[in-house]
Write a protein that binds this DNA or RNA. Structure first.
Lengths: 195, 195
DNA sequence: TTTTTGTTTAACAAAATTGTTTAATAAATT
DNA sequence: AATTTATTAAACAATTTTGTTAAACAAAAA
């Protein structure tokens, strides 16, 4: 027998993620996925039974990965400023690779009603909120609900990238020009968040 | 004959918008729309022929409406600060009513490849960018590419609302609590954009 | 070599979604 | 009142998408 080959299963998942997260094709069918992966559609069903199960898995893994990624940076032993710099770097990279991941997640929640509470570790976030609050008391950053600080940060990081198909047309820029604009933002966001 | 009744046609469109923009059900079928509008699915086809045409129309109207809404504020004869205040108010209201409108637009562009250049009036945006640049020279706001100023503004306005299903779970807040958080942001965004 | 096991595909079947046609209905016009 | 026109809905048909089954295939184990 062939040694239990995890390759194909992984290929299907990563292809699904490519279509959903990279290309923003939220309506991709199992046929679309099979085509993009260069295989028969039955393989998709063989490994994941139904489209819904594949999507549920992609959803769960996406949440887990994001949670882990952010959790690592948030709970790292670093000075606050460095941590924010880390968050900006890590999250910008993630968004550049998967611009529509969050769009997929929110749409899935809206349509299938997934429950992500069980899929994320609240710990790092809640202790990071405390850290933000301390920093506010130190006067490094403006005093508000620390949730606003986090929301602002992710807004400035995510929105421009996930909405790039709209804003690229709006500002009449090609993909490269827009990428340069995004690159400028790492420093810009840093300046905006402090002071 | 019955006087050409625009009521039903409008009802179908507004119901489609409700599903797409308000509830974020991007996969809504013609049956879903008909059900939500309380009518037979044939009516949808009678008025719009195909699902694609209905969606194309909803897309175009959405772009037009947004363009008009923002254009009006941007080209209003007001001091700069007032104009930003106006943008914040108008856009927050729009987002509160249709949280997933932009998600719909970007997904449509990704899947159907709509071309929105023809659907928006570039004039107001480009002259508003000039106005932002002048303000930067006056020193009211930080000096960068004025596009960043606009992108920052819309990021802070849109993202938290369109991602609320995720962040509400993230921060363990119910709908009302989150709405209060959003309400606080009008002033917060104003403070963030200036200084 | 021949089993056994896991993988891939083709063929089939079922379900969901879309689109059309035709008939019924109702209101305005002639 | 008869006719025309616009609307609605039921019935039907076509297409798309999903899911299953059975056979072919390949590689490891017996």
């Amino acid at each position: 027998m062939p040694a239990k080959d995890t390759g194909t299963e992984e290929l299907i998942k990563s292809t699904a993620k490519k279509l959903f997260f990279k290309e923003g094709k939220l309506h991709a069918t199992t046929q679309d996925i099979a085509d993009a992966a260069g295989m028969n559609r039955s393989a998709v069903h063989y490994y994941f039974r139904t489209r819904d199960q594949l999507i549920a898995l992609v959803f769960a893994e996406s949440m887990q990965a994001l949670s882990l990624l952010l959790g690592n940076v948030m709970s790292a032993k670093m000075p606050f400023r460095k941590k924010i710099q880390g968050l900006i770097d890590v999250f910008t990279n993630e968004m550049m690779e998967y611009p529509f991941q969050e769009v997929f997640l929110v749409t899935e929640i809206n349509t299938a009603g997934h429950d992500l509470v069980t899929k994320i570790d609240e710990g790092p976030v809640s202790s990071f909120l405390n850290e933000i609050e301390k920093e506010m008391q130190l006067g490094t950053i403006e005093k508000t609900d620390p949730k606003h600080f986090l929301i602002n940060l992710f807004s400035l990081l995510s929105y421009p990238i996930m909405m790039s198909p709209i804003y690229r047309q709006f500002f009449v820029m090609n993909e490269q020009q827009f990428d340069e604009l995004i690159a400028e933002r790492r420093e810009l966001i840093m300046r905006t968040m402090f002071k």
